[in-house]
Nucleic acid binder design. Sequence first.
RNA 1: GCCGCUGUAGCUCAGUUGGUAGAGCGGCGCUUUCGUAAAGCGUAGGUCUCCGGUUCGAUUCCGGACAGCGGCUCCA
Length: 603
Amino acid sequence: MNDEHLHAMRHSLAHITAAAVQRLWPEAKFGVGPVVDNGFYYDIDLGDKKISEANFPKIEKEMRGIIDYGDNFERSEMAIDEAIAWAQGNNQPYKEELLNDLKRSGTTIAKDLDVGELGLATDGVSAVDSVSFYKNGNFVDLCRGPHVDNTKDVGAFKLLRVAGAYWRGKETNPQMQRLYGVAFETQQELDQYLERLEQAKLRDHRRLGKELDLYTISPLVGAGLPLFTPRGTILRDVFAQYSNQLRQKFGFEKVWTPHITKQDLYEKSGHWAKFGDELFLVTSQETDDKMALKPMNCPHHTQIYASKPRSYRDLPVRYLETTTDYRDEKTGELGGLNRVRSLTQDDSHVFCRPDQIKDEINNLLVSARELYATIDMPLRVRLSYRDDSDGYLGEADLWASAQVQLKDAVLANAIEFFEQEGEAAFYGPKIDFMATDAIGREHQVATIQLDFVQPGRFGLEYTDSEGGLGTPVMIHCALLGSIERFLSVLIEHMAGWFPFWSAPEQIRVLTINDTVGDYVEDIKRILDGVVLMSPVKYNEIRYMVDDRNESLGKKIREATNFKIPVQLIVGQQDKDNHEVSVRTQAGEEKISLDALADYLKAI
RNA sequence: GCCGCUGUAGCUCAGUUGGUAGAGCGGCGCUUUCGUAAAGCGUAGGUCUCCGGUUCGAUUCCGGACAGCGGCUCCA
């Protein structure tokens, strides 16, 4: 049992899926069928007919028939023109397109072919002469392989879902149906995987957001416009405070900007050309100004910088603003708190001289690492570069320089990273911190971006030491990213058990009966005096008293289901001994009332 | 936006092959004052997401809208 065999198994199952579909719908046109994490998929076009999950039993039955029959996977070679003729003859236009690309440039990777380069590759240089096919039973498919020897050798599998997918990932191409399956060597491993998926649902932030009373979405307000409850708002505030305090240490100053602006601002910044159709437009009944809700804050901040002359001695100028932006995202992209139309950024912008870039980026890297280390969340760091496509602004050499400087900063901090082209912002490259949600999807949280473009477009300048004029560099940074998205990842990462310092309700006092009312008042006086100073400063204790006429068991159950980190149980015994029973996830212990404040500060 | 699926009480869900619905939890009331994950009894909650169509009759069938889920595309 090894990765290679698992890969061959899953790949073979993709073929078997396609073979089964072809038996059931002979007119099916096939795209590609690769291996993915935990399984495989196959892209299929049935024209007007659609496969739904209701068809899965029928398809799986057909697949089992093919597997049980036990055909060998037979490899053969075909000359490229012969293969194209085969695709035409069998009415497989997608395969024909792939073969033509292979013939022309030796690759079928859409990304390599899409950027206006079709036909640029010289015929015969990178082109291929012949291609390989695999045949199992009556099903023949263009394929590089490898496969298992026999259809019987494919382990345990299950068709999981069907989804739409554009041919070669292009929105303007026809949409095919993607059949996803999962596969493992043994039924036991498959069952374990499905069990893990079930477990992941328990920590889904949308489920916990409701159970823990953190936020709600009202259709009357609108999709993608979450409303935060008192508990959810505490979470937002406490993390925003932490994020701010981390940067205030490095000289960042808070600013405030309005949520609307004239569109002129974005025409100048370059956002209008790139994101114009995702702006919420605002109409003035008083003037003819065309206004928009702000979708980001950097252009606003440039205008604070530009409000007065700056000397090289004034730099860096560092602005900090936690504020909500509005983006008219496509409806199908919305989901929970991950992707919303009103997103709050813990945004900041540094305006500095070129020689200050390194230190400024270092400060931000240190802040980001400290924040995510505090909540024990592992991140992958991505250096996001531009690619050759249109839509990036600025000179090529500035881009090259910016990309090198970001990489140097990351290297200097000994941070592990991976590099990806085509992920940059239109004005500059980024260092992105990627977190993973409960079911393995990756989301960008913190981001540090280097921008040589916007300062120039806005005509920002400073007087240099020689008395001449220089253009400052901008560094954009959000440590949490979108607070909404950050919370979605945090909730799933912690499974709702927020660290003591950040929990909306940190402590619940549970009474055993109504004879301890005065003693509870003593405890409240102590709790009211506790202020945590780390990791967030001036963090007052948040607690409630549950003195309802209910059983202790029920109170414990409710407090535990609510994932309250500390329960203080108070009865006559505790009162007599001048102590409380402190119940946490770690267990329960008696703490003297005199030691309670220090105990809480040390959690 | 596109493809597929889903929408019954505050929550989790059952049900109606077309004759206007039910459970548990939660809420409320009474009893109980009970030391470690649900005390007992009673009771009130529903234009079955919304709008059209078919039908004697629609929560159920059909169409549309809205919302949610899984993908694709996109993410300043």
